[in-house]
């Protein structure tokens, strides 16, 4: 069996005032697209920066492609690509010149023409980088991460600030990376992005991983939610059940007996968003008050 691309065991990172990462464990298989989700301050970026070798860990075991990233070994740098948001994009050179420049710093770079095509910058290769739009700049960031032909690519909030078209373009680039067999670790706030791109996700909060699994499987085991609109009051009703068939039978029979339609009826498993909100939502002030009073 092939060793995982990333292995994290009991990782801790403490700052003088806060413990940002509190003992997390996960693995990322080779060729997998893995997402780290969580609210601000969850510890995602700290975790990724430790994996990239930018930040030193306080305790725990971390292996990236078989190397300790804390040592920042050259052999690891040859095999890892990091999408820097705008980093390394010199303004007075063309797209091609820029990619050619960074390609010269890697021992076995990917062909620059191929990278330009992969990133969807075919029509812009002779334009100066300063004249690119925001979406094109982001594609160029992807291209820069690809030019060294890495096995593992880190994407930290890759589509933050994108317009919808640029987001879709970035998603397509990530899918292309996956098709090329690259391992991708991405952090994101956007759950639709994680759902669309990731093979597995880990949801983090307060420096801990709350759950981990395939986006479609995270809701498995939870109750089905049946929602419908009450014909008399017009209000939306919902009920959670382990047996949606029985509940639907009950609801439709009752509606037929009354001669009323059953409007807007849906049956759904909790989505990734539901699971995420359920796990990460802060208790409301009222609920907190109740707890205190209770």
């Amino acid at each position: 069996m092939q060793a995982p691309a990333i292995l994290v065991r009991d990782l801790h990172k403490s700052y003088p005032s806060i413990e940002a990462v509190r003992g997390i464990d996960f693995e990322v298989a080779r060729g997998e697209v893995f997402g780290l989700l969580g609210p601000n301050g969850a510890g995602k970026t700290t975790t990724v920066e430790i994996l990239e070798g930018y930040r030193e860990r306080t305790a725990g075991i971390v292996s990236v492609l078989g190397h300790d990233p804390g040592q920042r070994p050259r052999t690891l740098r040859e095999r890892v690509g990091i999408v820097l948001q705008g980093g390394g994009v010199y303004r007075h050179v063309t797209v091609r010149e820029l990619l050619d420049h960074w390609a010269h710093l890697y021992p076995a770079p990917r062909d620059v023409d191929e990278v330009i095509e992969l990133a969807g910058l075919g029509g812009k290769q002779h334009e100066r980088t300063r004249s690119l739009s925001g979406g094109q700049r982001r594609r160029l960031d992807f291209a820069l991460a690809l030019v060294g032909d890495p096995e593992l690519i880190f994407l930290d909030e890759p589509t933050t600030g994108f317009d919808p078209a640029a987001r879709r373009a970035a998603w397509q680039t990530v899918r292309t990376l996956a098709e090329l067999g690259k391992t991708v670790l991405l952090t994101t706030h956007y759950l639709d992005e994680a759902q669309a791109l990731c093979d597995r996700v880990a949801i983090m909060k307060d420096g801990r991983i709350l759950t981990i699994g395939a986006p479609a499987e995270l809701g498995v085991g939870a109750l089905y939610r049946v929602v419908w609109r009450d014909a008399e009051t017009g209000e939306v009703q919902s009920r959670e059940t382990e047996d949606p068939t029985g509940l639907l039978h009950q609801l439709t029979s009752a509606a037929l007996a009354r001669g009323e339609p059953l409007r807007d009826i849906t049956v759904a498993r909790p989505s990734l968003e539901d699971v995420y909100l359920d796990l990460t939502e802060e208790p409301s002030a009222a609920a907190s008050q109740e707890v205190r009073d209770g």
Binding site: E52, R74, T75, R77, E78, V80, I82, L84, G86, G87, G88, V89, Y90, R91, W102, L105, Y106, P107, L144, G148
Partner: peptide
């Protein structure tokens, strides 16, 4: 200045050179 203002240092530090 270009390395500092345009993120060249970050890219360079990541490169295997």
């Amino acid at each position: 200045v270009a390395e500092e203002e345009q993120g060249g240092f970050d890219g360079f530090l990541l490169a295997p050179v």
